[in-house]
């Protein structure tokens, strides 16, 4: 198994050095870039397993970097936001970030999130026991490529969105709670007023072009119905 390759886009040089050292002890390989535009170029030129992106960057801002990356690649992106800035979080998730982490963060928590996102990506790509493709209704999930086809069209889902959809497909007909989704996909507990899961689900609906595919169950979670995906 090759080392996971993480790109860090943050203007705090000293912080990047420390984070690189910390994550290296956990077996990750880190590249740090301290400027937005350069970061976006690097992502487009090379492949990474995960990107940690600070939204407050001088020059090309974090959101612009996010937008640029998302138009070309679906590499998982963990966004670093200022604490309490709810609009930043929602905006980031809507623009395709996979999860966020308020700053200043607890390094162990950051590590847990990195692991959660990478675990689901990796297990699927490495495992040979699971079938390569799941077909259910009009959905076709390619677990190796992490791509989804709906009625023959590829839906450009991000990794976390793919994982949420996969979880829904695995539990088709059942209600999956938000807390469950957060725990299994993001590897963390959902705090009150955390709209992350709702934003991800809304993204899946939008991208599939059919807002009825996932039903909201008020106060509890989401449900994928067999008839809704026909």
């Amino acid at each position: 198994m090759t080392q996971d390759n993480i790109l860090l886009i943050d203007d705090d040089i000293e912080l990047c050095e420390l984070l690189a050292e910390y994550l290296a002890t956990e077996g990750y390989e880190i590249r740090a870039i301290h400027n937005g535009a350069e970061g976006a170029d690097t992502v487009l030129a090379e492949d990474f397993d995960l990107i940690i992106l600070d939204v407050m960057l001088p020059g090309m801002g974090g959101f612009d970097v996010l937008k640029t990356i998302r138009t070309h690649k679906k590499t998982p992106i963990l966004m670093l936001t200022a604490k309490g800035d709810d609009i930043d979080k929602i905006l980031g998730l809507e623009m395709g970030a996979d999860d966020y982490m308020p700053k200043p963060y607890n390094p162990r928590e950051l590590l847990a999130r990195i692991k959660a996102i990478l675990r689901r990506t990796k297990t699927k790509q490495d495992s040979s026991s699971k079938p390569e493709k799941i077909t259910i209704g009009n959905f076709q999930l390619d677990l190796g490529q992490l791509t989804v086809q709906y009625k023959g069209n590829t839906i450009p889902l991000t990794v976390v969105e793919f994982n949420i959809l996969e979880l829904m497909v695995e539990n088709i007909g059942k209600v999956v709670t938000r807390e469950d989704i957060a725990l299994k996909v993001l590897g963390r507990e959902l705090s009150p007023f955390d709209r992350s899961i709702d934003v991800h689900v809304s993204n899946i609906r939008k991208k599939s072009g059919n807002t009825d595919i996932i039903k909201s169950i008020r106060g509890s979670g989401y449900q994928l119905l067999t008839e809704s995906i026909k």
Binding site: D12, L15, L18, Y22, T25, P104, Y105, P107
Partner: peptide
């Protein structure tokens, strides 16, 4: 910022 760095150094 220094607080975040402090936390990282602590883990190291």
């Amino acid at each position: 910022s220094p607080l975040t760095r402090l936390r990282l150094s602590l883990e190291l």
